[in-house]
C-alpha cells in the first residue's frame, strides 16, 4: 500500500486513494490531526467525476514519490490527485499555499451576495465555514456583484443563483441519480448559471438530493416549513420503510413538528445515503418515522461550535452590516 505523508503525518492508504481521501483518513484516525484535511467545496465522494472545479482543496506536492521525488510544479487539486508511494504533501505547513487558498476563497466570495442573514443555509453553509477559516480580512472587490432573481424549480426546490459557486455537484446528482437530467449549467465564464430548460420543474424520485449536496444556499428546500434558522431546530436520526431509498434520514424538529427532512451527513459534510423525494418532501409527520435518537453533529462547523460567529464573520467579509436586532435576538436565544 502506498504511503503518503501530509504535513509530516504519514499514513498508508489503498492504491488509487486521492490526497484528499488520505487526509480525511488521517483526520478520522486521530481527531487532533483533522487540520491537515483540505477544505473541499466541489468534490463529493459519492458522485463520480466530481471535484477539480473549486480549487479550494489545492495542496503542494513537495515530493512526487519515492520513484520520482521531483516536486510537482504547481499546486494540485487534492481531490483529483492520486497518492503515490512515498509522496509528501504540504497543506497547512506551507504559507505560500495557504495564501493561494485564501486567494481561491476570495475569488469564490467576490460575486457572492453575503446574504447570510436571510439565507436558509446559514449555519450549515460550507462557504461560511470556509471563509471563516481561510478568508481574508476584507474583500478588495469594489464592483457590482452579478445578480440573478431567485427562481422556483418545481414545487420543492428553490434556486438562488446568486449564491451558487458552480461546484457542479447538483448536475452530477441529476446525471447519476436521476433518469434524465433536466437542469444544467448554461452560458459561459462568470455569467454561467444553473438553469433548468425554461424553468421546467426538476421532478423525479431523487432530485431532492441536489439540495443536500449543494454546499451553499443556492438550492434550498421550498417545503422547509417556516423559515427557521437551522440552529433553532433539533435534528434527530430517524428511519422509515421506503421502497425507493434506504429511508435513513435526519428530521429537523421544532417540538413535534417536522420542519425538514434531509440525508444524514457525515463529518465531512457528505450524506451517508441519498434519500428519495417521498421521504424528503412528503413525510413531514413524526408518526411516519421511527426516531433513533438525536443527531450527533461532528462537523467542524458553525453549528458544531455552539456559538454562532455571524457578526464577526460579517466584519471579516466587510459586508453590509446584518440586521442588528435580528442578531441580538439570536444571541439571546442561543445563550439560553
Amino acid at each position: 500500500m502506498p504511503k503518503v505523508t501530509i504535513d509530516g503525518i504519514p499514513i498508508e492508504v489503498p492504491e488509487g486513494t486521492t490526497i484528499l481521501q488520505a487526509a480525511r483518513m488521517i483526520g478520522e484516525r486521530d481527531k487532533a490531526h483533522r487540520h491537515v484535511v483540505p477544505p473541499a467545496m466541489c468534490y463529493y465522494t459519492k458522485l463520480e467525476t466530481s471535484g477539480g472545479y473549486c480549487r479550494t482543496c489545492i495542496v503542494k506536492v513537495t515530493k512526487g514519490s519515492d520513484k520520482d521525488p521531483r516536486p510537482m510544479p504547481k499546486p494540485v487539486a487534492s481531490c483529483r490527485t492520486a497518492v503515490m508511494d512515498g509522496m509528501e504533501v504540504a497543506n497547512t505547513t506551507d504559507p505560500e499555499l495557504l495564501e493561494a487558498r485564501k486567494g481561491v476563497v476570495e475569488f469564490l466570495l467576490i460575486n457572492h451576495p453575503l446574504d447570510c442573514p436571510v439565507c436558509d443555509q446559514a449555519g450549515e453553509c460550507h462557504l461560511q465555514d470556509l471563509s471563516y477559516e481561510n478568508g481574508k480580512a476584507a474583500s478588495r472587490y469594489e464592483f457590482e456583484r452579478r445578480t440573478f432573481e431567485p427562481v422556483d424549480i418545481g414545487d420543492s426546490i428553490k434556486l438562488h443563483m446568486n449564491r451558487c459557486i458552480l461546484c457542479y455537484r447538483c448536475v452530477k446528482v441529476a446525471d447519476q441519480l436521476t433518469d434524465g437530467r433536466v437542469h444544467g449549467v448554461i452560458n459561459r465564464g462568470d455569467v454561467s448559471e444553473i438553469s433548468t430548460y425554461i424553468s421546467q420543474a426538476v421532478e423525479n424520485d431523487m432530485s431532492g438530493n441536489m439540495i443536500d449536496v449543494c454546499p451553499v444556499g443556492a438550492l434550498t428546500d421550498r417545503t422547509f416549513r417556516f423559515s427557521s434558522r437551522v440552529w433553532f431546530t433539533n435534528p434527530v436520526d430517524a428511519h422509515r420503510e421506503c421502497g425507493t431509498c434506504a429511508g435513513k434520514a435526519v428530521l429537523w424538529l421544532k417540538g413535534n413538528e417536522v420542519l425538514r427532512v434531509t440525508g444524514r451527513k457525515d463529518q465531512w459534510g457528505e450524506v451517508e445515503d441519498f434519500i428519495c423525494n417521498t421521504c424528503r418532501f412528503d413525510k413531514k409527520d413524526l408518526n411516519a418515522w421511527k426516531v433513533e435518537g438525536p443527531r450527533k453533529i461532528d462537523r467542524h462547523s458553525v453549528i458544531g461550535q455552539g456559538h454562532y460567529m455571524l457578526q464577526r464573520k460579517q466584519q471579516l467579509l466587510n459586508a453590509p452590516a446584518p440586521n442588528v436586532p435580528e442578531i441580538a435576538k439570536r444571541k439571546e436565544l442561543k445563550d439560553r
Binding site: Y53, R55, V185, G189
Partner: peptide, 21 residues
C-alpha cells in the same frame, strides 16, 4: 480572457473579470 473563460474553476472564472474591471 474574461470573455473566453469557460467558467469551470473559480480563480479563472472570477479573477479574469475582476482584473478586467
Amino acid at each position: 480572457y474574461h470573455h473566453e473563460s469557460c467558467g469551470q474553476c473559480s480563480p479563472c472564472r472570477e479573477g479574469t473579470g475582476w482584473m478586467e474591471k
